[in-house]
């Protein structure tokens, strides 16, 4: 997971994939969608792994980021990149409303956040003066052209979202190896022991909620500028929570790569295999993957493979 690992990843992501499929709009659009999910999955996993909180409400952050960025860019002519940043910040601000839920235990937190997500969706429907209500926001400005390169193209958007996701992965890594990361890790199984040595556990959890919300908001905003149209049902769809959750449970939430691999894997499976085989109702397989993974490998597939790999290497040594 060090440089040895990073360089090949960068080479594949920035050179090999654009070189092989850069001109193929179908493949590129699949990858963009997959990395959108990956971004949310990463944010979700950060909250679960570091904050110890399982959220059923990430669609709230996704929708707030999408709406805020779209509306700022349309109504106040904000540059798209600034809008995306504001989308993230807005989502983080929105998460302040959820702070009271932090003192609830796991399942209750999850359900409380689900309620928040529903409330945000209803508000987006009802504040018609600002959000256009159920009609949705159209003509959202596309990603800009910089130095002659059109970032609104499929390839351009791919490069943007991949860069964002990699930056987020890096930030996640930095948090995880910091003292904050150590304290957060310790809080899971020994919260009192951590608090009596001076760790403000509520504040740390709140910070993870902000970071996770920010990341999700940014991704939601990018998506809005990519597809140029949003309405409350779409932007706040429970699917923005379900798919990343399945991805994380599939890929494993303990590792950095788990959510990314899980997201790309699950999304491709869903789009290319399940949809083709089943058609209407193909999400049944997502439910099945979720159930099977929780039953047989709650830590995900990647740790499972990782363990095997370690065992094989140890056996060889």
């Amino acid at each position: 997971m060090k440089i040895r690992f990073l360089l090949p990843v960068l080479a594949v992501v920035y050179l090999a994939i654009p070189y092989l499929w850069g001109g193929n709009n179908y493949v590129m659009s699949l990858l963009v969608a997959a990395f959108i999910i990956a971004g949310v999955a990463l944010a979700w996993a950060l909250l679960a792994n570091l904050g110890g909180m399982v959220s059923f409400g990430h669609s709230a952050f996704f929708g707030v980021g999408a709406y805020l960025s779209a509306l700022l860019c349309i109504n106040y002519r904000l540059p798209v990149l600034a809008g995306i940043l504001m989308g993230g910040i807005g989502a983080a601000v929105a998460s302040i409303a959820m702070l009271p839920a932090l003192r609830l235990r796991g399942p209750y937190f999850a359900l409380a956040v689900l309620a928040y997500a529903n409330i945000f969706k209803i508000l987006a429907m009802e504040f018609k003066g600002i959000t256009e209500g159920a009609a949705g926001v159209t003509n959202i400005p596309a990603l800009p052209t910089v130095m002659g390169f059109d970032f609104s193209s499929k390839l351009g958007t791919y490069l943007v979202i991949v860069t964002i996701v990699l930056l987020f992965t890096g930030s996640y890594h930095l948090i995880r190896v910091s003292h904050y990361g150590a304290a957060l890790k310790a809080m899971h199984d020994s919260e009192d022991a951590t608090r009596v040595v001076g760790v403000n556990s509520t504040l740390l959890k709140a910070m993870m909620l902000f970071v996770s919300a920010f990341m999700t908001g940014v991704v939601g905003a990018v998506n809005a500028h990519y597809i140029n149209f949003i309405d409350p049902d779409y932007a706040f769809d429970l699917g923005w929570t379900l798919l990343p959750m399945v991805a994380v449970v599939f890929g494993g939430y303990r590792t950095l790569m788990g959510p990314l691999v899980g997201a790309v894997g699950i999304f491709m499976l869903d789009q290319l295999v399940f949809k083709a085989l089943i058609g209407t109702g193909h999400q049944i397989m997502l439910g099945a993957v979720l159930a099977v993974m929780v039953l047989f490998s709650p830590d995900g597939l990647v740790p499972l493979i990782g363990d095997k790999w370690k065992r094989i290497r140890r056996a060889q040594a």
């Binding site: 796991g106 359900l111 959750m245 439910g287 993957v289 979720l290 929780v294 039953l295």
Partner: peptide, 26 residues
Amino acid sequence: LDKNREMNSLILTFGLGVILTNLVLF
């Protein structure tokens, strides 16, 4: 479910709900 049943059962039954909904849809 053996580990952390309270939380995992939530995710599990959520998944089973998705299965049933889509079965009905199918």
